[in-house]
């Protein structure tokens, strides 16, 4: 049938530049470079070796949390509890360190994070509660428990050995940055090459079709929340090691930065769309903006407005641009 052939005709071959520009990650990488260029013009200190390592260091905590958040958002969910779970597991880590060696203490904190994620995931997917509401509730409970367990004060007698978690250099790169990059590589590989990873995309894009195709939708809808909770604990472990103290306020508002990074990285809040590379770029953009504003001496009270505006404008420009490119 001629109609069929008309539909099937392959679209004209676009130039490699244009096909590159069709990829959201590439556009966001360009945006990141533009921001870096702008900031290096505004502040001569921005592109120095020490500031770059400084920014990488600042990316670690938010970057780790954003991995779990990407998994959750890919399934069409949201996890508002990451910040307070980080705070709570930080306190659990601090308390555990008082009575056991470092490795098991970290394990306890991570298992606690995973356990909290499991509860949220099951509530959301077995009882069909809204992810927004469940994790909002967990967020309140987590923060409250963090205060109660810590006795409303910071735990500062952290064993010296914890510093090694962050400050061991391998080939001149600190271990926390290496961990971050390895984690992203692993997560990218999982989402791209494994059945579980592809199932997570399928669940987020069309859960009913995934179920009818015999995929284990329940398992892969809950897994991201478990991962998100566990990674919140991993992230806060690096924080605790850095400042050698566990404070019940730690991780406050971290969920906003993490969600912003994932969304800037091109993920759809409806699920099914997004990537680890995009999220990593999103994290870098967030950290660069914060860092640049600090370098320029912008008042911390104005920084929130600046960051909010930049995020919204970036997404707006992206929306307008992508409409034009895909035409």
């Amino acid at each position: 049938m001629s109609m069929e052939t008309a539909i099937l005709a392959t679209p004209p071959k676009a130039s490699w530049l244009k096909s590159l520009a069709r990829r959201l990650e590439v556009r966001m990488l360009a945006l990141a470079l533009v921001i870096a260029l702008g900031l290096s013009l505004l502040s001569p200190y921005f592109l120095t070796h020490s500031n770059i390592f400084n920014m990488l260091d600042q990316s670690v905590v938010i970057g780790i949390v954003a991995v779990g958040m990407t998994f959750v958002i890919l399934t069409g969910g949201i996890d508002l509890s990451v910040g307070s779970v980080a705070g709570l597991t930080g306190i659990i880590l601090g308390l555990s360190l008082q009575s056991m060696p470092i490795a098991p203490a970290i394990l306890v904190a991570v298992l606690a994070g995973a356990g909290i994620g499991l509860v949220s995931g099951l509530l959301i997917n077995i009882f069909g509660l809204a992810a927004f509401v469940v994790t909002l509730g967990v967020m309140a409970i987590g923060r409250s428990l963090a205060y109660i367990l810590s006795g409303q004060s910071a735990i500062s007698n952290i064993p010296e050995g914890m510093q090694a978690v962050v400050y061991t250099n391998i080939l001149g790169v600190p271990s926390n940055v290496l961990f971050l990059l390895a984690l992203y590589a692993l997560a990218w590989g999982y989402l791209t090459f494994t059945k579980g990873g592809r199932t997570i995309y399928a669940v987020g894009s069309n859960k009913e079709a995934a179920r009818a195709a015999g995929l284990d939708t329940l398992f892969y809808s809950v897994l991201p929340y478990v991962l998100s909770g566990a990674l919140s604990a991993v992230a806060i472990t690096f924080s605790v090691a850095q400042i050698m103290s566990a404070d019940p306020l730690m991780g406050n508002q971290m969920e906003l930065d993490a969600i912003a990074a994932v969304v800037i990285g091109g993920a759809s809040l409806y699920g099914g769309r997004g990537s680890m590379i995009g999220t990593l770029i999103g994290v870098f953009i967030m950290v660069m903006i914060r860092n640049g504003l600090n370098l320029m001496g912008v008042s911390p009270f104005w920084q929130g407005s600046a960051i909010g505006t930049i995020i919204i404008v970036a997404l707006l420009v992206e929306r307008l641009l992508s409409a034009r490119i895909s035409r």
């Binding site: 592809r198 995309y201 399928a202 987020g204 894009s205 069309n206 009913e208 079709a209 995934a210 009818a212 099914g272 769309r273």
Partner: peptide, 12 residues
């Protein structure tokens, strides 16, 4: 709603 996963490629 029951068969197609729109965000995955034809092969997937």
């Amino acid at each position: 709603t029951q068969n197609i996963v729109p965000d995955l490629s034809v092969r997937e």
